[in-house]
Design a protein around this nucleic acid. Sequence first.
RNA 1: GUGGCUAUGGCUCAAUGGUAGAGCACCUGGUUGUGGCCCAGGAGGUUGUGGGUUCGAGCCCCACUAGCCACCCCA
Length: 420
Amino acid sequence: MTSYQRVTGMRDVLFDDQPYWRYILEKIQQTTDLFGYRRLDTPVLEQANLFIRGVGEGTDIVEKEMYLFEDRDGDYLALRPEFTAGIMRAYIENGLHTLPPPLRVWTTGPLFRHERPQAGRYRQHSQFDIEVIGEQDPAVDVEVISLAWHLFTALGFFGLRLYINSTGCPQCKPAYIQTLVDYFTQFAGKLPPDDQMRLKKNPLRILDSKEEATQPLLEHAPRITDHLCKECETHFSKLKSYLEAIDRPYIVDYRIVRGLDYYTKTVFEIKADGLGSQDTICGGGRYDGLIEELGGQPTPGIGFGSGIERYVIALRHLGVMPPPEPLPQVTVSYLGEAAKLVALKLAESLREANIGAQFTPGDRSFKAQLKAANRLNAKFAIILGENEINAGQALVRDMANSEQTPVDLTEVVSWLTERL
RNA sequence: GUGGCUAUGGCUCAAUGGUAGAGCACCUGGUUGUGGCCCAGGAGGUUGUGGGUUCGAGCCCCACUAGCCACCCCA
């Protein structure tokens, strides 16, 4: 065995996966262009306090999942576990509030969370992320969901489900949590240990519980949608009517409780098949208090993160094939040192003419070199031996029908251009 | 952080406690300079690591590490 191996939860993206990544990135670009979102990239490293403050001290991400370290200057840094806090930092730091609102941005790149890996979950993963900053109209909530849906449709997804909920706001959420605690406290004896913990630590999580004993209790548990304040109630009902206006089917799921502290009002998830138990490919919501929390002016915002590794898994499951990678259609083979020099030069000329060409190195037999052409699935193999060099020609072999045509060296580029 | 399963050539996997194998991939030959199919040959392993039991361990036991799956939680 090799002495070095991947760090736990990290993956190599090998050739079979790359066509998916290329395809996905291309569709992301097209979709964000279509909706008028602009790319904004932030560093992988931020001050750890940004996330502690932004994501929330009690969250799992901050409490037990962040990659933290002190750098050589003694600064306390974190590998970003999510995008939103960094983008809000960039928004504030670069004075982006001076741009005409709402600001629509997207980004992509690696995120890091020290979790236990499993299907569809890695310690380094990539997300496609969208943020709309500076607008509280539920119409942008719908726009963001629509953008996600558009992308998934363009990628060839089917069978996706959209779940929405409202998580309230600082006006109504605390009272609801109290109602919930009161409700479950009367059944505290019936709750499994995990849910007793949740009741104390994070009561909203009970809604999400998969414990069997808890399920019957959940049916009559108070729902946040019955306890929203006027403003949140209006926002949620408009969200639903706007979704209906664009014919986007949704499921109201009062159990959606997102794990980050900053969410207010709208939260949503999109789920796909084929992913095992980690089946959410897109999750997000509104964070109207976050920018102020991070030191900016009170500014509403909404966004989502969407796991690209999960796209690849789910697309495979659905049988969606990405376009194959474009490979060189020509190989250049030679026999003998004199021919090698000519071959090197010819391969160079072909590429200069924008014809994909691969030199077959190693002074191997023509047999081996043509084998390489075959493996590459090349359309043409150019053969340069002593005879060809003496005649100032190249032998161009059509790999499909094995026909070989002598072509003057000076004509090879134009000959191929006509036929590719 | 918890639990279950797993770990043998590059990959996928065999091997009643008794000489580590196959398929695929790779290289060479079968053609003085010609791919795919076929045939022949070759290279590639201290069986994840460290201990233990045994005359003898890939196989049994323990620990560690890693992977997979699930919980927690999330994308």
